[in-house]
Amino acid sequence: MPQRAGMPTQTRIILGVLLLAALIVPLLGQPYYTKLVSRMAIYAIAALSLDLLVGYAGLVSFGHAAFFGIGVYCAGLLPMVGIDQAWIIVPAAIACAALYGLFSGAVSLRASGLYFIFITLAFAEMMFYVAQGLRMFGGDDGFRLPRPTQLMAGLSLGNPVVLAYTMLVTLVIAIYVARRITGSHFGRVVIAARDNETKLRAIGLSPYPYRLTLYVIASALCAVAGVGFANLVEYASPASMSWVVSGEMLFMVILGSAATVIGPVLGAVVFVGLETVLSSLTEHWLFWLGLILVLRVLLLRHGLYGLLSGRGQR
């Protein structure tokens, strides 16, 4: 299942072209497409963080949107107390998500399989209802971002071009971090725990601390995507942490191929692209999206990543 070897040249070229396109689009002065690039990059970061759990650790979390939402609310709430600098908001989002990840992960990682899926879902729903209960912040409806997040030197994430480039840079950093972690000693132990937990114990390692560490990292990474998302839609609402969003992230991971880092990035790009195209063509776009996922599972053994790197049609 994992593709641990270096990327084939073909894949590198396609990724290079994609990145180049993403870098050029914001220069065209079309805010609609610039925002589309941001959206793809943001979901790519989120899907990539989920892939650390689903792909590498074999931990199917159905509550990853909770951490996305934590990022959204940090970007939305902190400006209300006069804090709008990215260098405070982003670390704050990371810290909050890491804390909630530590707490919810410590509990949910006691379970496995189906139980793990449902406990993660339950923890995300808890956050959802907390956000919904914030009456002074719009409750169910959420609230408009009082002020976009400010980078240094007068650059604001409220500017679509600045946001697009910021999220692209963040995505590249996230890919680098994910590849470092999954290729490390730690990453190898995480994969070993996925492959055979009993064996890992028998050679003297308990999987729990490794999984919990990874869970916290994935949570923190997803919150960074959430900060970007709040600036993209200029809005913070409980919908950003609903189970639907968790499901969409899983969709992207599976579409692209789990345990590849790059696969989920492609999955997110294609998902957002399809969503945009299909929803403009038909109101039944979700049906077609679902059909595409079914076809991917039936036809492409290694997802979009496999298709691109020329391996594994089923």
Binding site: I203, L205, Y210
Partner: peptide, 26 residues
């Protein structure tokens, strides 16, 4: 019982990491 997706030497390396305590290197 083995780590099926890892290569033979990587399987051995996980045991070596357990011994050397280097598994936490991130």
């Amino acid at each position: 019982r083995l780590f099926g997706s890892l290569s033979a030497i990587e399987n051995a390396s996980v045991a070596e990491m357990a011994r050397a305590g280097s598994g936490s290197r991130l």
